[in-house]
Write a protein that binds this DNA or RNA. Structure first.
Length: 760
RNA sequence: GCGCGUGUAGCUCAGUUGGUUAGAGCGUCUCGGUGACAUCGAGGAGGUCGCAGGUUCGAGUCCUGCCACGCGCACCA
């Protein structure tokens, strides 16, 4: 038989990949609906942000999942790899805002409605780029089931989950120091921060001590007297206008007798008490801390303690109102002195220090290295501000999450990542759900317009004290209410805040399975088999999916959590687009082909270690694919007529028996390795078998056989190649499928139209 | 400060429960177009296995300490 013209050397991915992918898609076998089987296998694609484009990390993730899915599909499982995208609240809003900025506009110029229109337009245009890129690397997702976190049904799921949590009494409006991004103009959760080292200063400021016996305040700054100051060390002198007290440790002998006395806050000359708190570290700075409840979480807690204990009754009147002296744009505001108002925090810091110096109130300034929190989306400096936000109580949910992993129902692979998970859950604070951006799911909470009294109560456990609003003012409603259920007469307004984007992500498992419209799919599909993801979203996403899915569906979301390594640059640095250290997988596909890229990624993928990317492995992949290609050509040249792959044991030569034995061993080993996610090793085992055993040894020995034996052995030749193609397919789907399409023509009775669905 | 990970050939990495001469890919060197394959074949060079101790008949592998790099968490007044 003639070898078809397209079967030319060398292998050319450009002539193959698109055509083959269409063949697969058209066949419908990416969908589970076409597969009849009692065994099922489900993987959820971690939904990439609509702002995203594929990087090597995504590619690694996709390769692993695709190998598992393809393997299981060939094993006869009803397989579903469910894809989708995440609306990615802040990230997406920022992208569109940046675009607007180029037009010289802000989102406020457009107004909410028009701005959201623009975001939707942007999403429709660019939101699916990453999914198209996934197709290029061969991902066999069921694209018909592609979901988006703001689909109609998904949005309903968000509301229904919230209703559930609301009815459980786990949602409350609380006052707390939140991480505020002055650029994005929103609160952020602790997990949405990045930290950066910053060289700054520790300022030692003298707070004059008010004389005890004096009824009138009198500053003790006369040079003749021994000046009596309480020296406070701070990195943020500009916040001093918000000070309500100075705290010392009761065990600190230096200050013990000062507790209960008062100091004069410099510049504004306000009297504030000296209080005791055990959280003040004696060794740090001077051992005296200024307490600024509106701008520091620890200070706020100390404040709450004082208020709730009512121990310090004499200070009560000082604590009526917490002065907030930094506004939402990180500028100094009232009640700070007029001269500083409207200026940026950093500028005021310098000015305050200057002013204090003039008054001789700066004792010393030390250089100080510390980490400052940044917004993980726009990298602006976070300003801790006292704010009212919506919180979700974590007490019960965290128990659920801990139990699921501790009991072994959910396993982390490698196991050591469990520690990260448990550690976070152990210390987790209530989840700040509300964001002050526009792009996202608006909270289904409504506000009664008539009942506006302020009633707050301090509650919560130790270390997690909070102020909670207790009076009836807000209520849950799925739709716009016709009548206010609280007062019965007003027209309630929906709260403007939207959900933390990770709140909607936490419902991914069941939101994508058409809950709440139906429970059928959940019952059929859950739990999924493995979640393949990166370590940086273990808490942000994985943990939250675990408790949410168990709480809502009473089923675990997945059995295994496969944490894959991070792909680093050759220098061991993080790949980043902005630093120009990123490598675009699409470029590699152009240069070497998708299979070569997949080979390169999986070849370098070892379970434990972050990998330093090297293109060499992709080159090796290209060579290997070409090797398979050429070996196949050789095999096909042997066929002068259609054959069947059934051989008789009697007719086998010595080398036939040997290679068949090796094949069997290889196949079994690879199966075990794939099942335990050791894909890099599996690929190497196959590589060695095919190249060293099959090509180098068996084919060479075959050539030496006499004509009569060759006639019998060519069936073995074909059989081993066929089996090899099957093994190769999950790893190198395009080339193996292309070769199979040619192979089919030489077979008397080809079982399947596609290698994709050949039985492993 | 606490914890985790890593350190093996020029580069990227394997190395099972301690057991001969420490492996692969890429690169490099020599030779070779011989029935698929030069994106190939045959062969070679290249390693004090981070450092220092210890356990052992025997350590890349186990223990202790140290060094270097990376990461996470806490503190961050």
């Amino acid at each position: 038989m003639k070898v078809p013209k397209v079967f030319l050397k060398p292998y050319n991915s450009k002539l193959v990949e698109e055509r083959i992918y269409q063949l697969w898609e058209k066949s419908g076998y990416f969908s589970p609906d076409k597969i009849r089987s009692k065994k099922k296998f489900l993987i959820f694609l971690p939904p990439p942000n609509v702002t995203g484009s594929l990087h090597l990390g995504h590619a690694l993730n996709a390769c692993i999942s695709d190998i598992l899915i393809r393997f299981k599909r060939m094993k006869g499982f009803k397989t579903l790899w469910l894809p989708g995208t995440d609306h990615a609240g802040i990230a997406t809003q920022n992208v569109v805002e940046k675009k607007l900025k180029k037009e010289g506009k802000t989102r406020f110029d457009l107004g909410k409605e028009n701005f959201l229109k623009r975001v939707w337009e942007w999403k429709e245009k660019y939101g699916n780029v990453i999914l198209e890129q996934l197709k290029k690397i061969g991902a066999s997702c069921d694209w018909k089931r592609t979901r988006f976190t703001m689909d109609k049904n998904y949005s309903l799921a968000v509301k229904e989950v919230f209703r559930y949590l609301w009815n459980r009494g786990w949602v409350y409006r609380g006052k707390r120091i939140v991480n505020w991004c002055p650029r994005c103009q929103t609160s952020l959760s602790d997990l949405e921060l990045e930290y950066q080292e910053e060289k700054s200063c520790l300022y030692y400021i003298r707070y004059p001590i008010k004389k005890k016996s004096d009824s009138k305040s009198q500053l003790l700054t006369d040079k003749d007297q021994t000046p009596k100051y309480l020296v406070v060390a701070t990195t943020r002198p500009e916040t001093m206008f918000g000070d309500l007290a100075v705290a010392v440790n009761q065990k600190d002998k230096r200050y013990r007798n000062l507790i209960g006395e008062k100091v004069i806050l410099p510049i504004v000359k306000r009297e504030i008490p000296i209080i005791a708190d055990k959280r003040v570290e004696i060794e740090f700075g001077t051992g005296a801390v200024k307490i600024t409840p509106a701008h520091d979480p620890l200070d706020y807690e100390i404040y709450l303690d004082l208020v709730s204990k009512k121990k310090s009754k004499e200070f009560q009147n000082l604590f009526l109102e917490i002065p907030r002296i930094i506004d939402d744009s990180a500028r100094i505001c009232e009640p700070a002195p007029k001269k500083y108002q409207g200026l940026k925090v950093k500028e005021v810091r310098e000015r305050v220090v200057e002013d204090l110096k003039k008054q001789g109130l700066i004792e010393k300034i030390e250089p100080y290295l510390h980490k400052v929190p940044l917004c993980y989306r726009c990298h602006s400096k976070i300003e801790p501000l006292l704010k009212e936000q919506w919180f979700l109580k974590m007490e019960e949910l965290k128990k659920v999450a801990v139990e699921a992993v501790k009991s072994g129902k959910i396993k982390f692979v490698p196991k050591r990542w469990e520690r990260i998970y448990f550690n976070w859950l152990k210390n987790v604070k209530d989840w700040c759900l509300s964001r002050q951006i526009w792009w996202g799911h608006q909270l289904p909470i409504w506000e009664c317009a008539t009942n506006g009294s302020e009633k707050w109560e301090v509650g919560g456990e130790k270390g997690g004290k909070r102020e909670m609003r207790v009076e009836k003012k807000y209520f849950f409603s799925l739709e716009k209410p016709k009548k206010c259920p609280i007062c019965g007469k007003c027209q309630p307004k929906q709260v403007e805040d939207v959900f933390d984007t990770w709140f909607s992500s936490s419902l991914w498992i069941f939101g994508t399975l058409n809950w709440p419209k139906t429970k059928k799919e959940i019952n059929f599909w859950l739990p999924s088999d493995v979640l393949c993801t990166a370590k940086d979203i273990i808490n942000l996403w994985v943990a939250r999916m675990i408790f949410m899915t168990i709480e809502i569906c009473h089923k675990i979301p997945f059995r295994d959590v496969l944490i894959h390594p991070t792909i680093l640059t050759k220098e061991g640095k993080r790949m980043s687009k902005s630093l120009g250290t990123g490598i675009d997988p699409m470029d590699l596909i152009k240069d070497y082909g998708a299979d070569a890229l997949r080979f390169g990624i999986i070849w370098q993928y070892q379970e434990n270690q972050d990998l330093r990317w090297s293109n060499d492995a992709v080159i090796a992949g290209q060579k290997f694919i070409n090797k398979i290609w050429n070996a196949s050509r050789f095999v096909f040249f042997q066929f002068d007529k259609k054959i069947s792959l059934n051989f008789k044991k009697k007719s086998l030569s010595k080398c036939d028996k040997k290679i068949l034995k090796e094949l069997k061993k290889t196949k079994e080993r690879i199966e075990v390795l794939i099942e335990s996610y050791k894909l890099g090793k599996a690929l190497r085992v196959f590589y060695q078998f095919f190249w060293n055993k099959f090509c180098d040894v068996y084919i060479e020995e075959y050539k030496k056989l006499d004509l009569k034996q060759k006639e019998k052995s060519k069936i073995v030749l074909g059989y081993v190649l066929f089996e090899s193609l099957k093994i190769a397919h999950p790893f190198l789907p395009f080339a193996s499928e292309e070769i199979y399409q040619h192979f089919k023509k030489f077979l008397k009775k080809p079982k399947s139209k596609l290698l994709l669905i050949e039985r492993w």
